[in-house]
Write a protein that binds this DNA or RNA. Structure first.
Length: 189
DNA sequence: CCCTGATTCGC
DNA sequence: GCGAATCAGG
């Protein structure tokens, strides 16, 4: 694949929108995110608002003299929120806030303690001891997103264990999050 | 581990 | 000009 004019257009557009290089590469097809980043630099439309760079010069085989002219500075750069990040966390928000509009995919409701089987509950407690205590940033597609603790305090983190493929939680937490109807049906309260 | 962008340098 | 490999970091 080559950088035809229209492909460059797509690149420019998406980059301008704050899309990540990998997203752009996926969209274009036939190129890797490296290719996209390389092109972005060659086009000189690097510095996007926000993204901190790694200016320090690494000299392995010192050669390249001066290079980056360091172009236009953006005077009016309104904080550009990343349009896309893993953020299905709305449903787990602090009790401090009231009704939060759950944008996007609604997550399974937080189970009330009294609806969870004793076994599952025990196993969850067990798992929470070995939780990786990930911060928000460290959550990915395949880490357990089960919140532990009170978001309003320091005592808050995410389970972070390996999540079940396609599921947002690890095995133990999937167990309490997705209960078969049958077991729910006649659970006395 | 997943991801991000930045840089280098052989092609 | 291109982009894989590598780096640096969240």
């Amino acid at each position: 694949m080559s950088w035809t004019e229209d492909r460059v257009e797509v690149l420019k557009k998406m980059w301008g929108e704050g899309q990540s290089a990998s997203q752009i590469a996926k969209e274009l097809g036939g190129v890797t995110r490296n290719a996209v980043i390389g092109k972005v630099h060659r086009l000189g439309l690097s510095n996007r608002a926000g993204t901190a760079a790694k200016p320090a010069a690494k000299d392995k085989a010192a050669a390249k003299p001066a290079a980056k002219p360091k172009v236009a500075a953006k005077p009016s750069a309104p904080a550009k929120p990343r349009p896309e990040t893993t953020s299905p966390l709305a449903a787990h928000q602090s009790p401090a806030r009231k009704a939060i509009i759950p944008a996007g995919q609604p997550l399974p409701p937080q189970p009330s303690a009294n609806e969870i089987s004793p076994e599952a509950l025990a196993s969850v407690r067990e798992v929470e001891k070995t939780a990786k205590k990930l911060s928000l940033m460290e959550l990915t597609e395949r880490t357990c997103k089960w919140p532990i603790g009170d978001p309003a305090t320091e005592e808050f983190w995410f389970c972070g264990l390996a999540s079940q493929p396609g599921k947002p939680y690890c095995e133990a937490h999937v167990g309490v999050a997705f209960q078969p109807m049958s077991s729910r049906r006649d659970r006395r309260r």
